[in-house]
Simulated assay, not measured.
Amino acid sequence: MFKNLSPNIKSSITRSITQTFEQYMASIAWDEELYSIEQFVATWREYITTKALWYSKIPEDIKQHPSFHEDLAQRINEVIQRILNEPPSEDQIASIQMMQEKLDTHYTYGCKAEANFVENLLTEHLQKEQD
């Protein structure tokens, strides 16, 4: 069923999963012990039903079909795996390392999205120190 959707809708679904996952992970400070797939899916479901323009473009009979839900679950898993397996850039690593030395911190990160979170966190800490 997912395969039969337009490329624009499929792309929008993928973007919404990516954005919501990264926002959800930031909300729990990328703490793996706090991660809950159920909570993430609930967050994503709320987003798609209240803010995603593409959701209303999918016919109700497709939305209700079990194979569509299976396809979505598979897509969610694929997107999460892609995010978690994308390594941080060399620039991110260098930037984080410099900031951690200045701040004497020891944050760890395993992927590009988590490195982005750490980089933003360290930037905020540096800005607070300068104020």
Rank of each mutant, 00 (worst) to 15 (best):
D71F: 08
N120E: 12
E33I: 04
V79I: 15
E46M: 05
S16V: 01
D104W: 08
A29T: 11
A42Q: 04
K3W: 03
I13A: 10
E129T: 06
I93G: 02
C111Q: 02
N120V: 00
P88H: 12
Y35L: 06
W30C: 14
K10R: 15
H106W: 07
T18E: 12
K128N: 05
N4M: 07
K112P: 00
L72T: 00
S16T: 11
Y24A: 02
K3Q: 14
F2P: 04
L72C: 04
P7M: 07
T20F: 00
L5K: 04
S67K: 12
I48Y: 02
D61Y: 15
N85E: 13
E114T: 06
R82E: 08
M99H: 07
L34R: 12
I17L: 02
S67M: 11
F40K: 03
T105Q: 15
F40S: 02
I37R: 13
M25W: 02
A42Y: 00
D71N: 14
T43A: 06
H69V: 02
A94K: 15
A29W: 06
R15G: 01
N77K: 15
R45S: 09
E33Y: 09
S12V: 00
D131Q: 11
I83V: 14
H69E: 06
A113Y: 04
T43F: 10
P59V: 10
Y107P: 02
I37A: 09
E114Y: 05
Q81W: 01
W30M: 12
T20I: 03
S67W: 06
P59F: 07
E101A: 13
K51N: 03
I37D: 08
D71M: 08
M25L: 09
M1Q: 10
I48K: 05
D31E: 14
M25I: 04
L122M: 09
W54L: 02
E22W: 01
K128W: 00
E32R: 14
Q39N: 12
K57C: 06
R82A: 07
I62Q: 10
M1C: 09
D71A: 14
L72Q: 01
I96R: 03
E33V: 03
A42F: 00
I83H: 10
M25R: 12
K63A: 09
Y107R: 04
